[in-house]
Each structure stands twice: as C-alpha cells, then as structure tokens.
C-alpha cells in the first residue's frame, strides 16, 4: 500500500493547496451553528418539560383542596390556547416576510405575535388569580404545586419569548437586522413555536383529559 499512501499529499504545506483549506466559516451539515444549537436546545427542553408533565400526572389527584375539574374553566383556557396557537401563524408569517426581505411586514407580524403572546400571559395571570381566589393556592395540595409549577414554567418561557420578540422589533427598527442576520428571526421563531407546541401538550394532558 506504500505507493498509494505516498501519492497523497502528506506534507503540511500541501494542505494549503487543498480547495477548502482556508474557508473556516463553512459548516459540515449545511446548517448554521446557531440554528443547529437552537434545535439541540429544544431537544433538551423536551426532557425538562417532560419531567414537569410527569410530575403533574403523578400528582393530579389532590388529597385535599379543589380538584382539577372542579376548578378548570375550559372555555376560557380554550380561548387562550387558541390565541397562542394563532401566534404561531403570525410568527411563521414574520419569518416568511424577512425571507423576502420585507422588513416592515416582518415587524408587523412579530408585533402581532408578541401581542398574542402577551394576551395569553394576561389570560394565565387572570386564571391564576381566579384559582387562588377559589382556594387553590400554590401550597394547597400536591396537585396545586404541580399545576402552578408546570403552567408557570411554561408561562415564563412565553414571557422570555415575548421579550425576545420585542427586542427583535426594536433591533429591526434600528436597522440591526440586516439580511445576513435574517436567520435570527427564524431562530427566535423556532423557540416560539416550541413553546406553543408545549402548550398543545399541556392543554390536552392537563386541561382536557378528565380525571
């Protein structure tokens, strides 16, 4: 095998002649680092929310205090779920707009997404205050702790998403999202859709399944 081995460029200097030797920004998968990183983070978040959902399933029957279906207001929660679901549509339209380079349209859709998200959060705060008034405090029962922790944790994720969306609009208004950074919008969008998807699970598992 010696012949074939010596025939290839073994010397370090020869590497410099190789076609790609100096393009260090290239990525092997063809996906940008940030996008790949965001997907990995989201995969990891599955296990975080999985742990909290599992805890809820284990503790959904309280020994004392109100039970889930005495207290849930399904029509109300359905509405706010619907609001969050539609925010995914506005988000994806924002991504679509920036892909075409339409900055103004993107800002409008992102603003709409943030507004829908804020509506959802307002609904959640209202829901929590009603529950507390009806006697379901955070420390009331194992169910109450698990419920508030799971939905509250999700709410924090939505809030962080809203902050990112608002920051995006502000950055965009100041011209800080030029075309070559347009992918930032898509990546924030990935986070936003993921938060929505988690709510799809929570809505079905926590609210709709009867005990």
């Amino acid at each position: 095998m010696a012949e074939s081995l010596t025939s290839r460029p073994t010397l370090a200097a020869a590497d410099a002649q190789q076609a790609h030797a100096h393009i260090d920004a290239d990525t092997n998968t063809g996906i940008s680092n940030t996008k790949l990183g965001m997907w990995l983070f989201l995969a990891s978040e599955c296990l975080l929310f999985g742990g909290l959902i599992t805890t809820y399933l284990l503790y959904k029957h309280p020994l004392e205090g109100p039970t889930p279906h005495e207290i849930f207001d399904i029509p109300f929660t359905s509405t706010s779920s619907f609001v969050l679901l539609m925010s995914s549509l506005t988000m994806v339209l924002a991504v679509s707009a920036i892909e075409r380079g339409e900055h103004q349209r993107m800002r409008v859709w992102i603003g709409a997404t943030a507004a829908l998200g804020a509506t959802f959060i307002a609904g959640q705060i209202y829901e929590f205050t009603v529950f507390v008034r009806e006697g379901l405090g955070f420390t009331t029962s194992r169910f109450s702790s698990a419920f508030y922790t799971l939905t509250g944790f999700h709410g924090i994720h939505v809030t962080i998403g809203i902050i990112m969306l608002v920051s995006l609009v502000l950055l965009s208004l100041r011209g800080k999202i030029p075309e070559h950074r347009a992918e930032t919008v898509e990546i924030v969008g990935l986070y936003w859709h993921f938060v929505d998807v988690v709510w799809v699970v929570i809505f079905a598992v926590v609210y709709l399944i009867p005990s």
């Binding site: 790949l36 997907w39 989201l42 995969a43 990891s44 599955c46 296990l47």
Partner: peptide
Amino acid sequence: LFYMGLVLA
C-alpha cells in the same frame, strides 16, 4: 436530533 430528544423523553 429533535426527535431523539423527544422520543427519549
């Protein structure tokens, strides 16, 4: 990658 995390969870 995403389904790896999801399925594992």
